[in-house]
Structures are given as structure tokens and as C-alpha cells.
Design a protein around this nucleic acid. Structure first.
Lengths: 368, 368
DNA sequence: CTGTTAGCGCGTTCAG
DNA sequence: CTGAACGCGCTAACAG
């Protein structure tokens, strides 16, 4: 525990680690014995055959204790570890589950944490994969990812906000915040309809009558339901549903920013905005600041999700909480059940949402 | 945009998707032609050979336009996508970078977001891998993970809070929040020493004289430096450094909770606690609540990290901010440079920290 | 008890 | 212009 002043103890630049066996131009990537230790090398070093090493690794019967000991020692010394890839190619089972996301943003990473919780202690390892937000493949990324991973790298997968509904699951797959349409995949979702009503009713309760909305990715059930909840709450309060106050934000900060700009530049702008997710709400807050609008005195903003970031906003965002992390946990449990061939008690799980008042909402017209 | 009332449109339980071709007991996992579409099938369907399909996929010369067209169509129709695993095994390059973490907790997921930002538009895909917090392998998990992935699945890796220093990098590797000891790996870190001083000086400035600390994982440079900063700040203010007020929390909520309990049950307990990371600080807040202590009136708490969750705490946590996400970005850039064989301008990058006052600190003795 | 052999799915020569 | 053959690292049958 003796604190030692090692900082900046830089031992010279040294040779860069990079492509040490310079394969000049991707011309002939010879399988030169690089850093990776393979079974081949272990076998050679130990003076046994490859299959013996394999047997030792997998604790198969038919190997003398002496050999086991010897090989084990060599493995230790060489720091050998089986290549996940090679093993996956050979075996049907990999003991790895995947979380497939379009991008690593707050929602998907919260789900990831939940899935991580959910598989804890199950002996499974976890891989999260993102196709990198390639623009060309915004629709259908999950089919691509699934094809690339499922059945070879992972035993099952959790799909976060998939863009299509007809993902022919070649294996155990669970969707979180699923696509709209006849429920195909087993899924976990929040009660978006009720949540949206909670959020909008709060604004109505404060006295707002011109309430705008920035909607989400129109292909997602959640986005549709949040929009529907918005409409229902307005109707229930006897307020008109004005299409001019609704803009699409696509669950995307950039698009939402543009939507907010349009909404707030309206001749008679809304005094409150309900955003379909927190990222859009946060974007709205930024736009409001740009336009010199004071939140919440001149503009109220309500989000949806309650991602951790929303509390960091200025002002802290009033939002509708959905238990994202728990959704991940549930999805993990369903997935594990599917993998082990169990019957699911329910193919679709809906968790309740709750209202989280913070500081981005207030009664209208305090500007005067 | 027509909201449609599809919720709970459950189309009956239906047969579970599970192990459809029931391999009874893992006995003989025959390579039965399962869901996954392979090149073999594409070739058969298109009436060409496998290699032709491969050439079409990789846009190689030597295939007639007609064939290309035909094969492409079949690929489309079958929804074929090359298996990442098989391809990785064959090729040296995979166009995938990895983020290797011990566990998916707030810090590592923030780094993940940063890396994701950093590789955006580079054409690389991103995989995050966690060995699942297997208890047996708490030390040395990174060597294991690295061996399993590097050189076959990923072209390079970002290691988050590695436990050992001698990771013989068989390839491009960058560490975030590195291990203590002579700087081996290229790394990205925050100025922990200064940050810790900022946090403790704040407490001293408020008038605290009995300031406890919950330290971090003693093998990490960051933890050591934060402890050192704590000591230095006390000494600089002429305060005694009391070992009885220091407990190890190991950057782990459970351990930290225990440490906090001990610290606060001390005969003459500290009036303020500086925790080596936010997770520990959050645990301390919980313990304080359990013990009926009012924060910040009876106890002040300062954390370190500024993970998004810290603002959600009750009360919102005063902490030292380190730019975690940016650290991920920097690490990604360094990694990409290493992969493409460039020389690094600097092997070690240190980012500055800043103080984030929130509501978990106040002058001492307001309880009276 | 140990070594040999045959692929897993794909990319890449090298002959037809 | 196309197809057969080989090997990436590993595992599971089958011989020795």
C-alpha cells in the first residue's frame, strides 16, 4: 500500500509493437509463428502429439497422470490459452452468449450491464458486438450480425432494438425493445404506453396545453406506443392533437436536434416537449440553450428511459424511467432458459415504468 | 406513424425455438445442417463451386459478370453472411477490435462508449469481451482473454484496468487505467494524483480534519496515485495521516461497503470519506443511510470517476471527474495507429481531472 | 495410454 | 473463367 511515485516513468519510446513481422502489403500473410501460442507449439515443446494436449485441456480420460502433469506445466510456462475462434469453429457449444447492438450508446450499454448481471455465475462468457454503426447497414444489421456470430461464436443472442421483425432465429434469440409487428421473437419490453401517458399527464397537470413531441424510431414498437400514449393523454385531457407539434427524432441525437430546432422555431411554439427517449430530450435541452430559452421556465422537457446521463444534464432531466438494466437481466434469463432447451413461462415480458420528476419541467408562462 | 394497438398481441405460446434439432444430451453434436447458411449451401444452390462464391464475396478478379450477378442474387435470397469465426481463422486481418474487460460495470462501459466513438468511421467493428467475472481468474484475466481473442478474432485490443503488467503483447494492445509498475503497454490514464488532491483539498477547505479514505485495487497505478494524493493533501495542510482512517475497498462495491462499515463504526469516526472510485463512494452512501447518518450534514463523501450514475445518487455525489469516455477515444486512436503500423507520438497519455461539486459534501459538525 | 486422421467454414493458390 | 485441394487451430473418432 506504499504509494510509489512511478508516474511518467516512461522507459523510452522503444520499438513500436505494431506489425512486427511486416506483411508488406497484405500480399502474403504467411502463417509465420507469431506471438500466439498454438497447440502445435505446446505439443512440440512437450514432446507429445496435438491430440494429447487437447485431451489434457478438456480433461478427457485416457492420459497418464505423468503426461497430464508434464503437459500442464508446459501449458503454464508457455502461457497457452485455446483460441476461442478455432474452438468455436469445431464445437457446436461455445459457452458464450452475445449481445448484439447497433451502437454502444447509453441504452444499449445499460442493457449490456443487465445481461452481464443476468448471466453472472452461469458459467457463460459474454460478448457484445456492434457492426460499428455502418451507415449502409442501418436496417437489417441484426440479421447480418446474427448470421456472422450465431451458431459459431455464440450459443445465443440478445438483440437490442432490432430493425426487422422476421429475424429467422436459427437458435436462441431474445429481443429487448423489439420491433413492431406480430410478436415473433421472445422479447422484453417496458410498458411504453403507460409510461408515455405518465410523462404527458405530468405536463398537462402543470398546466401545459401546447405540448410537442419528438418521436422515436418509427419501426420500433416502443416508439409507436410512446407516441400513442402521448396522443391518448392529450385526448383524455380534452386537448387537441396537433400534428404540427410532432416531429420525428428517430431516437437519434442528431435527428432529434434538428427536430427540436424546427419545433421551437414554430410561429407559436410548444411550451413543453415530450421526447421519445432521453437522448432526444437531452438534444432538446441543448437546442433550447442555443435558442436562449430557459428550461424549465420557458420550456419544459420530459424524456423517456432514465439513462444515468439524464441526471447529469443541466437542468437534470425529468423523465419516465424504464428499468433498462432489469430488462437486460430478464432477457439473459430467458436466453439461458432457451439455450438449455427449457420452455419459457412467457414469451413476452413487459416491465412497468415510473415517473421521475427532476428539474426540467415547470408550469408554463413563467417567462412573462 | 399510425400508432397501432399491437401490445400484448401474443400469438399463443407456440413451440419454443430452443434446441430444435434436439441433440439429446450433448452426446453427438452432429453437424446437422442447421439454420446457419454456409458457403457450401450457397454454392450448391447457385450451381457453382465454393471458391467461386468466395471470389464473388471478396470481389476477386476472374469471375464472369453473369456469374457474379447470379451468385449475388442467391446470396441475397438465402441471406448468407460469412461467418466471422471461420473467416477470422483463415485470415490474419479481421477488421475487428476488441475491448477486454473484467466485468461490465459503469467505468468499463464508459470506456466502451469512448472506444466506440473513437473507431467510428474507421471501418472497424467492435467487440467487447468479458470472461464473466469468474472468481477463479480475477488475476490474469487479461492474459487469458488476450490469448483467446488476439491474433484470431481481433486485430488489436484495449485492456481496461488490467491486473498484470507483463502482458506480452503479441500484437497491438493499449491499456486504459493501467497496472502499476514500469510502463510496459501503451496506455491512457487520468491525472489521478492531482485529482485526488483536488477532492481531499475540497474536504479540508470545508473544515474537515478527520478524513477517511477507502482505497482502490492496490495493484492499479490509479489506486496508488489516488492514495498518494490523499496523503499529500493531508500533509500539505498539516493534518496527520492516520492509518486507522484508511480501509481498502478494492474498487469493488461489496468490499467497499464492508470498509465503509468499519470506518464509520470507528470509536471516533471520520467526518468525511474520500473514496477511490464512485462505486465505492456510492456504497459508502448506502452504508451511511443504513447507520442513520445524514449525508452531507453528518458525513461528507467524495468519489472519483464521475460515472453517470453518481449524479443519480441521493444525495448527488460530489466527485472528481476523469474524462472516461475521452480516455476510450484516445485509446482507440492509439490502437488504430498501432494496428496500421504507425509510430505513436507518445506511448502514455495522461488526461486531466477536474472537481465536480455536488451535494454529498458540507462543512463538518452541522449535526450538533 | 498415445498418435493419426478427418473435418468445422472459409480464402487462396494452382491446375483444368 | 472455374473448381479441386490445402490449411488456419482445434476436437473427436479410430487405430496402434
Amino acid at each position: 500500500m506504499e504509494p510509489d511515485p512511478l508516474r511518467d516513468h516512461v522507459v523510452g519510446p522503444g520499438p513500436v509493437v505494431g506489425t512486427d513481422d511486416g506483411t508488406p502489403d497484405g500480399h502474403l500473410p504467411l502463417p509465420s509463428p507469431r506471438g500466439r501460442v498454438t497447440m502445435q507449439q505446446v505439443a512440440a515443446e512437450a514432446g507429445v502429439s496435438i491430440s494429447t494436449v487437447s485431451k489434457v485441456l478438456n480433461a478427457r480420460y485416457g492420459v497418464s497422470t505423468a503426461t497430464v502433469d508434464h503437459v500442464t506445466r508446459v501449458i503454464e510456462r508457455l502461457g497457452y490459452e485455446a483460441s476461442l475462434v478455432a474452438r468455436s469453429l469445431r464445437n457446436r457449444r461455445t459457452n458464450v452468449v452475445g449481445v448484439l447492438v447497433m451502437d454502444f450508446e447509453p441504452f444499449s450499454t445499460e442493457v449490456l450491464k443487465g445481461v452481464s448481471d443476468g448471466i453472472h455465475g452461469s458459467g457463460y462468457e459474454l460478448i457484445a458486438y456492434s457492426a460499428g454503426g455502418h451507415v449502409e447497414a442501418r436496417v437489417g444489421w441484426e440479421r447480418r450480425s446474427l448470421s456472422r456470430l450465431m451458431g459459431s461464436l455464440v450459443d445465443g443472442a440478445v438483440l437490442v432494438t432490432p430493425t426487422v421483425t422476421d429475424v429467422q432465429a436459427d437458435g436462441p434469440v431474445v429481443a429487448v425493445d423489439p420491433h413492431t409487428g406480430p410478436a415473433g421473437l421472445p422479447s422484453v419490453a417496458a410498458d411504453n404506453l403507460q409510461g408515455a401517458r405518465l410523462g404527458v399527464e405530468h405536463l398537462i397537470g402543470l398546466g401545459h396545453t401546447r405540448i410537442g413531441m419528438i418521436t422515436g424510431r418509427s419501426d420500433l414498437l416502443s416508439a409507436q406506443q410512446r407516441h400513442q400514449g402521448y396522443c391518448e393523454a392529450l385526448v383524455a385531457a380534452g386537448l387537441p392533437v396537433d400534428g404540427a407539434l410532432v416531429r420525428s427524432g428517430g431516437f437519434d441525437p442528431e435527428i432529434a436536434r434538428e427536430a427540436a430546432r424546427e419545433l421551437l422555431s414554430h410561429p407559436s411554439p410548444p411550451t413543453a416537449v415530450f421526447a421519445a427517449n432521453d437522448l432526444s430530450a437531452l438534444a432538446t435541452l441543448e437546442v433550447a440553450t442555443e435558442l436562449g430559452l430557459d428550461v424549465p421556465r420557458q420550456l419544459s422537457v420530459v424524456g423517456f428511459d432514465d439513462i444515468p446521463e439524464s441526471a447529469l444534464a443541466d437542468p437534470p432531466l425529468t423523465t419516465v424511467q424504464q428499468p433498462i438494466r432489469q430488462m437486460g437481466r430478464e432477457a439473459a434469463q430467458m436466453l439461458l432458459a432457451l439455450i438449455s432447451g427449457e420452455e419459457l413461462p412467457h414469451r413476452h415480458r413487459t416491465l412497468t415504468t415510473s415517473f421521475r420528476p427532476r428539474a426540467s419541467t415547470a408550469p408554463p408562462g413563467q417567462a412573462s
